[in-house]
Amino acid sequence: MTAQTTTRAPGAAGERESRHAPLILTVFGLYARGEHNWLSVASVISLMADLGVESRAVRSSVSRMKRREVLRGERHEGVAGYSLADSTLQTLAEGDVRIFRQARASREDGWVLVVFSVPESEREKRHALRTALTRLGFGTAASGVWIAPGHLAAETRRTLERRGLSAYVDIFTGDHVAFGELREKVRSWWDLDELTAMYADFLDRYRPVLDAVTRREPRPLEAFRTYVPMLTQWRRMPYRDPGLPLELLPPEWNGVAAAELFDRLNTLLRAPAEAHAAELFRTRR
């Protein structure tokens, strides 16, 4: 039933850690917030072991996440552990809306444009801006001009302010009034082929899982081993795909089927996976 991907494939240590960090962040996002924003080191290692990740790799990845200020080291009653940094908590809270309740834009929502200019002496800010806008799901209309559906305007403003990038940008909202076919414009602004491939991979991997889960209710450990990697793979997609209006997308856009599959698996797997984690926390108190 499980579609868990192995994390012990050969490769450089840095590459393995880069694969482990998203899983660790998913675990913290799902379970630390319900545990007063703290998980013991032992609990993290146990949960990641259930996902096939060795303790040494977990410790190394967590240390790197701490250096990047994604996590903070904290001791509770003498027990070593980690909490989510304030900025990470805010990012995850905003991400919850995208991942679990993403809105589909309509043409009536219009568009939000971000226009930016960054001095050559601050190239790192230019990279940070492009990274932030890509994560928000923006497409590129022209050099220094990025575009997204209008319903993302408020989130865009909050994100750029939080990251200290607002001094470099102007944000506009409006409608496309002329010229050219908007459907073709959308295809040039976003890499729809890449998005289609991402959704196709998710559908191929997890449709058999849904069939298995529908036939037999998974045990908590099985559900955990499937749910955490599934959510980790899925949570990238609502950021790459900003919920473009369906009428501007190719016919039978597979993002709709992928979102429906995610919703069903989330409904079926979330509670038993959480039960597995909760039982582990009880035994380690």
Results as ranks from 00 to 15, higher is better:
Phe179Val: 00
Leu246Asp: 04
Ala105Gly: 10
Glu35Ile: 06
Pro250His: 12
Asp109Arg: 04
Ala197His: 03
Tyr31Met: 09
Gly243Val: 11
Glu54Ile: 06
Leu192Pro: 05
Ser143Asp: 05
Ala200Pro: 02
His20Ser: 13
Ser87Trp: 07
Arg101Ser: 13
Leu249Arg: 13
Asp204Ala: 15
Ala132Asp: 01
Leu261Glu: 09
Phe202Cys: 11
Phe281Arg: 13
Pro149Glu: 03
Arg162Met: 01
Arg215Leu: 02
Gly139Leu: 11
Asp263Gln: 13
Tyr82Val: 00
Ala278Thr: 13
Met198Asn: 13
Thr88Leu: 06
Glu17Thr: 00
Gln90Glu: 01
Glu252Gln: 08
Pro245Met: 06
Ser55Glu: 14
Pro238His: 02
Thr88Asn: 06
Arg285Gln: 05
Ala13Leu: 09
Ser188Val: 03
Thr7Lys: 08
Lys185Trp: 01
Thr7Cys: 08
Leu280Phe: 06
Leu152Glu: 06
Gly78Arg: 03
Asp86Asn: 03
Leu89Gln: 12
His176Gln: 09
Pro250Thr: 14
Ala49Leu: 03
Arg33Ser: 05
Ile171Asn: 01
Gly73Thr: 04
His36Cys: 05
Asp86Glu: 10
Leu244Lys: 05
Asp201Met: 14
Asn37Ile: 09
Thr91Pro: 06
Leu231Ala: 06
Pro10Met: 09
Val79His: 11
Asp86Ile: 09
Thr156Arg: 02
Leu160Ser: 00
Glu54Gln: 14
Asp204Thr: 08
His151Ala: 05
Leu23Pro: 06
Ala273Gly: 07
Asn266Asp: 12
Val97Ala: 08
Lys125Ile: 10
Tyr168Ser: 04
Asp170His: 05
Arg285Phe: 12
Arg98Thr: 12
Thr173Asp: 06
Ala178Met: 10
Leu210Phe: 12
Glu274Val: 03
Leu248Arg: 00
Val169Leu: 04
His151Val: 11
Trp146Asn: 11
Gly144Lys: 12
Leu84Pro: 15
Arg163Phe: 07
Arg64Trp: 08
Arg16Ala: 07
Glu17His: 10
Leu92Pro: 10
Leu182Thr: 10
Leu165Ala: 02
Glu274Arg: 13
Asn254Leu: 07
Leu246Cys: 04
Asp193Arg: 11
His36Ser: 14
Ala141Asp: 02
Ala85Glu: 03
Ala148Gly: 15
Phe116Ile: 06
Ser83Ile: 00
Trp111His: 11
His176Glu: 07
Pro238Thr: 05
Gly150Arg: 05
Asp201Thr: 15
Trp253Asn: 12
Ser40Lys: 05
Asn254His: 10
Asn266Cys: 08
Gly78Lys: 02
Thr173Trp: 11
Arg59Ser: 14
Gly137Gln: 05
Leu30Asp: 01
Thr7Gln: 09
Gly150His: 11
Ala258Gln: 14
Trp189Gln: 10
Arg235Glu: 09
Met65Gly: 12
Gly144Gln: 07
Ala32Gln: 02
Leu269Val: 07
Leu133Gln: 15
Gly14Arg: 04
Ala277Asp: 01
Ser61Lys: 10
Ala141Tyr: 08
Arg205Lys: 15
His276Glu: 09
Thr2Asp: 14
Arg235Asp: 08
Ile24Lys: 11
Lys185Cys: 06
Thr140Ser: 15
Leu221Met: 06
Thr232Pro: 04
Met65Asn: 09
Thr283Arg: 14
Arg215Val: 00
Glu120Ile: 11
Arg236Trp: 10
Ser40Asp: 00
Gly150Thr: 10
Ala103Arg: 15
